[in-house]
């Protein structure tokens, strides 16, 4: 399961609401203890998708390298990635799946009319053909 602590959560929601109506993205860092991942730090990152960001996001590899280094520097792990779905639900779309990485948790925040609605976490498989829903605990749950 994945638990998101208050400070990290507030930053994720603020980033998603600030970038509305575009999609936001970022990295989630924290410790992993057995099956429990605890997100302590959220790192908002720039959506680098060159086209319509209302419908797409793209992370620069160098930003993910930075996130990985930040995690190591602070004795934490890169747990996963978060992004927003403006004016639609927090499902894991075909585009999300086909551009995912199976090593990480993917938290999707549904932002409707500029306000947070709900969130889900997803675990894509190696073939990028399906994603399982992961138990998610966050302060708004």
């Amino acid at each position: 399961m994945i638990k998101i602590e208050q400070e990290a959560w507030d930053l994720m929601v603020a980033h998603a609401q600030k970038t509305y109506p575009n999609e936001c993205c970022g990295a989630m860092l924290g410790p992993i203890d057995g099956d429990v991942k605890t997100v302590r730090v959220a790192l908002p990152l720039e959506n680098a998708y060159p086209g319509a960001q209302r419908e797409r996001y793209e992370l620069r590899p160098e930003d993910l390298l930075f996130a990985e280094r930040e995690a190591r520097k602070n004795g934490m792990d890169l747990i996963g990635i978060f992004h927003s779905h403006p004016d639609c639900d927090a499902y894991f779309s075909k585009t999300d799946l086909e551009n995912s990485c199976p090593w990480y948790s993917f938290v999707v925040l549904s932002i409707q009319k500029g306000q947070f609605q709900h969130a889900n976490s997803w675990l894509p498989n190696m073939e990028q053909t399906e994603a399982a829903k992961e138990e998610l605990e966050h302060p708004h749950a």
């Binding site: 999609e23 998708y49 419908e55 797409r56 996001y57 793209e58 992370l59 590899p61 993910l64 390298l65 990985e68 990635i81 992004h83 779905h85 403006p86 639609c88 779309s93 585009t95 999300d96 551009n99 995912s100 990485c101 090593w103 990480y104 993917f106």
Partner: peptide, 11 residues
């Protein structure tokens, strides 16, 4: 050498 994921998506 760093192994870095490639990640994107969209609704």
């Amino acid at each position: 050498i760093s192994i870095v994921p490639s990640i994107a998506g969209g609704k």
